[in-house]
């Protein structure tokens, strides 16, 4: 492996990280918007946000990405590859994230809402001061899962010829012919990014829990707690996680 190849890879890592961050910001906005809309008192708001979630969870992220990149321009909107990728990933993972938001908000004890009513808080104050501060720390582990899934999803953008890590690997393979080395290295690079993301999320979770006077749960060296179907209020995350 020559220095030029490593340069190629690190350029790819940089684009991958950018793509992940942009998509994550969009996904977070969608997750909170749609997730809170699903707890609305108005049925029409609940219904429309439910349609959004079912639509984007039913769609394949790659097909959506292709549609945005190849079909949408025919309707008159030309999207740059990076933005088609960001939009597809952000909208899809936002739908999964909205289930996390909804689940965590609904898992806050109803008595907390009653206590906030008894103190005459407005509905928005109840959400902002009482419900969300308790729900957000619970969202951290599932958001971590989603962020890793999102990171893995950024590889799809290579198929739109965006110069992220997987695309750079393709270039490297074509120029060196050393497939095993090239793909071995970028798999490790992805793993390292995922590890760093997980450590950061664990840190955020610890912070969030400390700010409400609770200790975080113990966890292993690379622990992502995966969602498993089961009874009780459930916070689900990975694609295919239970709603």
């Amino acid at each position: 492996m020559t220095g030029a190849l490593w340069e190629l890879f690190f350029e790819g890592v940089w684009i991958t990280v950018q793509l992940m961050v942009y998509s994550a910001v969009l996904a977070a906005a969608v997750a909170f918007g749609i997730g809170l809309a699903r707890t609305s008192r108005l049925w029409i708001v609940r219904f429309l946000s439910g349609v959004y979630v079912e639509f984007f969870r039913g769609t394949s992220a790659l097909v959506l990405m292709f549609w945005l990149f190849f079909a949408l321009p025919l309707l008159g909107w030309q999207l740059a590859g990076l933005w088609a990728g960001t939009l597809a990933l952000g909208l899809s993972y936002g739908a999964y994230g909205s289930e996390v938001v909804r689940g965590s908000v609904q898992a806050v004890a109803p008595a907390q809402r009653e206590a906030a009513i008894a103190l005459s808080f407005t509905p928005w104050q109840r959400m902002r001061k009482v419900i969300l501060p308790q729900a957000v720390p619970e969202m951290m582990p599932p958001f971590n899962n989603l962020l890793i899934e999102l990171l893995k999803g950024t590889a799809l953008a290579s198929l739109l010829s965006i110069g992220e890590l997987t695309f750079q690997a393709k270039l490297a393979r074509l120029s060196t012919g050393q497939s095993a080395q090239v793909y071995g290295i970028i798999l490790v690079l992805y793993f390292v990014i995922a590890f760093v993301v997980t450590r950061i999320m664990r840190l955020l979770e610890r912070r969030a829990k400390a700010s409400i006077g609770r200790a975080p749960e113990k966890s292993g060296w690379f622990s992502r707690r995966l969602p498993i179907g089961g009874p009780g209020p459930q916070v689900t995350t990975a694609p295919g996680g239970k709603p």
Binding site: G153, T166, A169, A180, Y183, G184, L187, Y190, A194, F222
Partner: peptide
């Protein structure tokens, strides 16, 4: 298990597709 779970399926597919024949 952790390695496979935390890396992209697409890259794993490329790995299998280009490396296994070798």
């Amino acid at each position: 298990v952790e390695f496979v779970r935390n890396t992209p399926l697409l890259v794993q597919l490329f790995f299998l597709f280009f490396v296994l024949p070798g």
